[in-house]
Design a protein around this nucleic acid. Structure first.
Lengths: 206, 206
DNA sequence: TTTCGCAACAGAATAATATTCTGTTTATGG
DNA sequence: CCATAAACAGAATATTATTCTGTTGCGAAA
């Protein structure tokens, strides 16, 4: 399963076996019951461990939450960064970004669902500063990359704040709808349309 | 303040005074502390009332949450519906949708922030069915409206599932960034660019 | 190989929080 | 004015998060 692969990659080894178990089952609980409704006892029972073990590894409920959150975000960002290396033009980059985003969500729907749900909790919790730092770094990197690429003859939207929203916004919105069950057909079906549309969206009028 | 106006409009009269008070302060707590971190005791103290009163009016914490959520969603939808009446062409409608959305968020930032944060909690809680029903109704209405309008000579994206995401997705993404403090300049500054871009986004290639 | 030290775990005890319950007040229709 | 129910207060209870104390087992240093 895709979930296990993410955890195995970031927490390898036999030593971290229980830690992985806890994270895996906590993720499932958060997604099935909601973050506030999942109790420590529920994840304890679910992986047949003890509260002591959970608190030893994560400190508190928020610790589990933010660990999962940063793992997911790291994985998503790493994949984007890797494929974005190959882009030669801005148009390449836009297509790659959209496809990478849609692929990641459809490859890891449980992680993606969690990422959407947990963001606001992490943003308010004790790791908000860490989240903020990562965000500014990620967006700075992305902006630098986008502005370093060849734009060809095209007239592109100037604002660096607008650009990411125009490129990813529609895909994100559609993925949310899919993950919540509001729409049935997978966003991957719309991958190319989303990419083409994003490219049109960032052109300047006239 | 814009917040008070929304509550005054939907819960008028002297009888509902405390109910309004509780909602108003609960909204502030949820936004400042986060949903999970706000305790009943905190909102009790903040509006100088009793737990008895709170539970009398709302049943439980989730009751406060969903009441606030549906109030906000209703207000946003009502505004959209009202202005969307005036649209004569699809292009009109796209511009109106984007502007109405951005205006509502920038007019009611606290309500908008809450709407983003609370959605997943409501979607898992006891009112999930009510939320789902509203969503399908809203999206059905919107789809009907969009497909009833004159498209002029333009070739438009066919998928009715894709259309709303393409139109609102970028604005939503940008508004989230603004509400979370990641970007400083108000989305209203980008209102027209967002509208024009959305219109380009939904054209079909070639 | 033995032993020391510390991380990994278990589960009882405690603290914080949500919810219920019982009683009192207040408004309102008859 | 009275009856009635909603509106409210606060103590009591239940649920859940967190801490604390102790045990186990592994891995490194001797």
């Amino acid at each position: 399963m895709a979930e296990d692969k993410i955890l195995d990659r970031l927490l390898p080894g036999r030593r971290a076996a229980l830690k992985r178990e806890i994270l895996e089952h906590a993720l499932a609980c958060f997604n099935e019951l909601g973050i506030e409704a999942t109790t420590i006892d529920a994840v304890k029972t679910r992986c047949g461990t003890s509260v002591g073990a959970i608190y030893h590894h994560f400190g508190n409920k928020e610790g589990i939450l933010s660990t999962l959150f940063f793992i997911a975000q790291d994985d998503q960002r790493a994949q984007l960064k890797a494929v974005l290396q190959k882009a030669n033009t801005l148009q390449d980059a836009v297509y790659i970004m959209v496809r990478s985003y849609v692929d990641w969500v459809t490859d890891h729907p449980d992680w993606a669902r969690f990422l959407f749900q947990a963001r606001s909790a992490v943003a308010k919790g004790p790791h908000r500063q860490q989240l903020e730092e990562r965000n500014v770094e990620n967006y700075r990197d992305l902006k630098d990359r986008l502005f370093s690429l060849d734009r060809g003859p095209h007239e592109i939207i100037q604002s660096s704040e607008l650009l990411p929203s125009l490129i990813i916004g529609p895909s994100e919105n559609l993925c949310r709808a899919w993950l919540s069950g509001r729409i049935q057909v997978s966003p991957s079906e719309y991958r190319d349309q989303l990419a083409e549309s994003a490219w049109r969206a960032i052109q300047r009028s006239q």
